[in-house]
Amino acid sequence: MLARHNKRIKLHGFNNLTKSLSFNIYDICYASGERHRDEYIAYIDEAYNAARLTQILTDVAQLIGANILDISRQDYDPQGASVTMLISEEPVATERIGYTEGPGPLPETVLAHLDKSHITVHTYPESHPEGGIATFRADIDVSTCGRISPLRALNYLIHSFESDIVIMDYRVRGFTRDIRGKKHFIDHKINSIQDFLSRDTKDKYQMVDVNVYQEYLFHTKMVLKDFDLDNYMFGLGKEDYSAREAGRIAKLLKREMMEIFYGKNMSRAP
């Protein structure tokens, strides 16, 4: 287990630890026929275009108290978008930055200390040409240097997307020295990424951890607990299908979710 950091560490110069959060979300639906698949892609391009993603990343930067230095964004044809944002530190009141494990806030001011940091997002809408399954994936990376952890933005990011599956990786790299010359390879207490999630998120998702404490690597996967077929139908509802066909579609969707969650292909249901 990691040692508790209950007292402030008096550092020799700047805290140069690098803390990186990789946040991958998957939104799955069933779109029968070419017309519904085209409508699904059009919806994704409207809801998750570069302009909206830029606004989400801008909110994240404001949330952790960063200055935005530069923004590069691009929409792609036939689908997808990317945004890269360079951020830097701004003056902080360091006594207001805490180390307590807990969910980060939704958009409100949190002061931070950042330098040589960035936030990126890339989207990957795709659909199965025969099976009717359409999966939207967004990859978000928040990397910061200094005292603040990008985990502070996690709660906001999860609430910004409607996600069936969320896969998160958090890593602390490098080291910083205290005034006695001792190296510190992490400067805040963490047992699990789950400790930074709000109660409503924990109630909504089933979660699994794979953590390597001695390497400061933390991995959490989440999948929705409840399944309502109507929430996954694009263009039509389950009442538009026979009970048998609706059951078949439900099996397809559940298998897609489990294959992504476990990271492997599964045998087809009979």
Rank of each mutant, 00 (worst) to 15 (best):
M1Y: 13
M1S: 13
A3P: 13
N24A: 00
Y30I: 05
A31M: 03
H36T: 08
R37E: 12
I41N: 05
Y43F: 15
Y43G: 04
N49L: 04
R52E: 09
T54I: 02
D59P: 07
A66Q: 02
Y76I: 05
S82Y: 09
P91V: 11
A93T: 15
Y99D: 10
Y99S: 14
Y99C: 10
P103K: 01
G104H: 01
T109A: 14
V110F: 08
L111Q: 15
A112D: 07
S117G: 11
V121K: 00
E126H: 10
H128F: 07
A134L: 04
D139M: 02
I140W: 00
S143A: 08
I148V: 13
R152P: 00
L154P: 02
S163V: 06
D169N: 13
Y170H: 02
R173C: 10
I186W: 09
L197S: 06
S198W: 03
D203N: 15
D203E: 15
M207H: 03
M207Q: 05
V208R: 12
V210R: 09
Y213G: 07
L217V: 07
F218H: 00
L224V: 10
K238F: 03
A243E: 15
G247E: 10
I249Q: 02
A250V: 08
K251V: 13
R255V: 08
